[in-house]
Amino acid sequence: MIIEYRRFTKRYGDVVAANGVDLRVPARTTVALIGPNGSGKTTTLKALLGLVRPTSGEVLVDGTDVTAAGAGLRRRIGYLPQRLSFPEGMRALEVLELYARLRRVAADDLRALLRRVELEEVAGRAVDGFSGGMRQRLGLAVALLGDPELLVLDEPSAALDPSGALLVRDLIREIRADGTGVLLCSHDLAEVQALADQVAVFVGGRVCAMGRPDELAYTGGNPGDIEAIYQAYAGMRARRAEGVAYALPS
């Protein structure tokens, strides 16, 4: 699955959330969107999922505009939203059964899926009592239903404690190893460093740099260091004002 954003723009009244985003996500790669709050990362993800309609520009999946693609495309993509919630009082297995029915996935392997995200033992427990990490892992299980070609993850480890974040990170690493593409946005630069094949840096609603970490400019440290890349692009103006130089890899 190849994804292309061409001059994707989204305005909410006077507010420009995405301002001519050009981005290409190759098949079976992990691409991380990084950038400050309000730089257009989540809006860009949501446009791919049909949750947000472009004001102008296009979002294409394998050459087809997502606004015309419909249910067939949604079946190929798994999504983990940022502020995850499940219907009140439902048990973990019931949540998976609901989404399996909506995705028309056989219900035989749901326990195996819960085992994969280490929730099999609490399959019969109401999700209301789940910790943030458990909810996130259940969300990942939902996203994995039907073996999607691409996983879209919006801040997958936000609000998790370190062990929860590491567990989720390991799971994403496993999913990548199976050949599933991952498009994620994250403020956790260590997570991005650990997972991303490519990085797109968002500033002011547009992509100001995109490529393999070792291809991008950086401030101090080593080539490919995500923190230094982030500083070079997202913090560029502020850093310039402070007189910090940034470099391109040789």
């Binding site: 049909g50 949750l51 949604r74 993509i77 999504y79 919630s85 989404y99 969300g139």
Partner: peptide, 9 residues
């Protein structure tokens, strides 16, 4: 996120 999760199915 719950609404979003339903609508992307």
């Amino acid at each position: 996120g719950g609404t979003e999760l339903l609508l992307v199915q």
